[in-house]
């Protein structure tokens, strides 16, 4: 069932996601596992960085997928599956963030980043350092700015999709992104390899 009737592509596509969602809604657990594999890593990355607590982040992602499994029959495909899933994650993360006290950023959160294909150890080390510096800068942003920026810049959602996920308007998202970007640029200006 997975991949049937889908034009070959490099990454997740809306059509393939819709096919998987329809199958999963009919009880196809393999299709749902494919959905988890496609979108889970991004959801975890997002949750970890908005919550700054690995346990809370995992709880948010698990709860989001449980909610997705039990309510997939109601998913009509009006929005992209990815947007819908990030909406569930965001909702769970916001609930957890309200219940928890603010936590200091944990550098270990990004341990091992980035493990890309470059063979140059200096480039790898620099990438990891950059990512840590960015995580520290992100941690100082207000929650909503951080969430907007992560969804748009790391997860690749459009501003309209970010607005949908966070339950706000595109103008608000545009403003939050501009402020987040200015703040992050200012903080990253002091970074030296």
């Amino acid at each position: 069932m997975v991949g049937w009737g889908v034009v070959a592509q490099a990454g997740p596509s809306r059509d393939a996601d819709l096919a998987l969602a329809r199958s999963a809604a009919l009880g196809d657990r393999e299709a749902f596992e494919e959905i988890v594999l496609r979108h889970g890593p991004g959801m975890l990355r997002y949750a970890r960085r908005v919550l700054h607590d690995p346990g809370d982040a995992e709880e948010a992602v698990q709860d989001a997928f449980v909610a997705a499994w039990t309510s997939l029959e109601g998913f009509r495909g009006d929005s992209a599956l990815r947007t819908w899933l990030f909406g569930l994650t965001s909702h769970k993360a916001r609930d957890l963030a309200r219940r928890r006290r603010p936590q200091p950023v944990d550098d270990d959160l990004v341990a091992g980043l980035p493990a890309d294909e470059r063979s140059d150890p200096l480039a790898l080390a620099e990438g990891a350092e950059l990512a840590r510096a960015l995580d520290r800068a992100l941690a100082r942003l207000p929650y909503r700015q951080r969430a907007c920026w992560l969804l748009a810049e790391i997860e690749g959602l459009s501003q309209a999709e970010v607005a949908q996920v966070l339950g706000t308007g595109p103008d608000v998202v545009r403003g939050q992104l501009a402020r987040a970007r200015r703040a992050l640029e200012a903080r990253m200006a002091t970074w030296r390899p």
Binding site: L44, A111, P114, D116, G127, G156
Partner: peptide
């Protein structure tokens, strides 16, 4: 770097 890295764990 953040976007391209696999999520640890």
């Amino acid at each position: 770097a953040l976007r391209e890295a696999p999520e640890p764990g």
